[in-house]
């Protein structure tokens, strides 16, 4: 039997009268790769924030590996072994690439092991040439890659990525795809994404959000060819 690593039941988030997330029931299995798509304002990011502890859901429950984590703070959820990347790059600009990755590793490993793991990840992500450079001086694509390194170095079993391919060149996206495939060898990965090209190249199962609720959940091909999805997501003309 495959273990369920992330589950939400009846997850609802209201902002005043607006229901941003409406009774979402979501299940994710170990080492599964899942994309969340939907038009702007569909509730993808709200769902993401409720799961990562950045927001506290109004109703409903979140479970990770069977443990209820509803209302936990972000650092508590991350401590379970969950890697999170937010929409905008969140890195330490005045520190070197190595220090950024080392800090992430240090949370779970001893000083010596953290350095070894940081070196290993830097090699795996081909960041060696910029390892001593300051984060603030790097290009957008490199920063995104380093942030994936920050997530990967902690050896998470669940990875949550909010728009990892946003604003990246085709070459960077290819690299990103590789890295994400590497991650799925050990972890379940959830990706919130807009870029259809990227989703086609990477996803197996896609969950479509619409008006805060889950519209459908199926394989990429079925989702892409579904008339309803095309109507809400791609616009009626497409």
């Amino acid at each position: 039997m495959v273990e369920t690593v992330l589950e939400t039941s009846g997850l609802t988030m209201r902002f005043g009268g607006v229901i941003a997330s409406d009774n979402v029931n979501f299940k994710l299995q170990a080492r599964e790769l899942r994309c969340l798509i939907g038009p702007n304002g569909a509730g993808k990011s709200t769902f993401f924030k409720c799961v990562t502890g950045l927001l506290k859901p109004t109703e409903g429950h979140v479970y990770m590996r069977g443990q209820e984590v509803t209302g936990w703070q972000t650092h508590q959820i991350a401590s379970l072994g969950v890697g999170i990347k937010t929409q905008t790059p969140n890195v330490m600009d005045a520190l070197s690439v190595h220090e950024n990755i080392w800090l992430a590793a240090r949370r779970f490993y001893s000083i010596v092991e953290a350095r070894e793991r940081a070196d290993e990840i830097i090699e795996r992500l081909a960041l060696g040439a910029i390892a001593r450079a300051q984060m603030g001086q790097l290009a957008h694509g490199e920063r995104q890659r380093v942030e994936l390194g920050i997530v990967a170095v902690a050896n998470p079993w669940l990875v949550l990525l909010d728009e990892p391919a946003a604003g990246m060149s085709a070459q960077d996206v290819d690299r990103m795809t590789d890295i994400i495939h590497q991650l799925t060898r050990f972890a379940a990965v959830v990706i919130v994404e807009h870029d259809m090209q990227f989703i086609r190249s990477i996803a197996q199962t896609v969950t479509v959000f619409h008006q805060g609720a889950v519209l459908m959940e199926d394989s990429v091909e079925n989702v892409m060819s579904d008339p309803q999805v095309r109507a809400v997501y791609l616009g009626k003309k497409a």
Partner: peptide
């Protein structure tokens, strides 16, 4: 070193689990 990390980006350090 973690304190300096927090100075630089509190949100990221929280996401790392600190």
């Amino acid at each position: 070193r973690i304190a300096v990390g927090i100075r630089e980006n509190e949100v990221r350090m929280g996401l790392m689990g600190y």
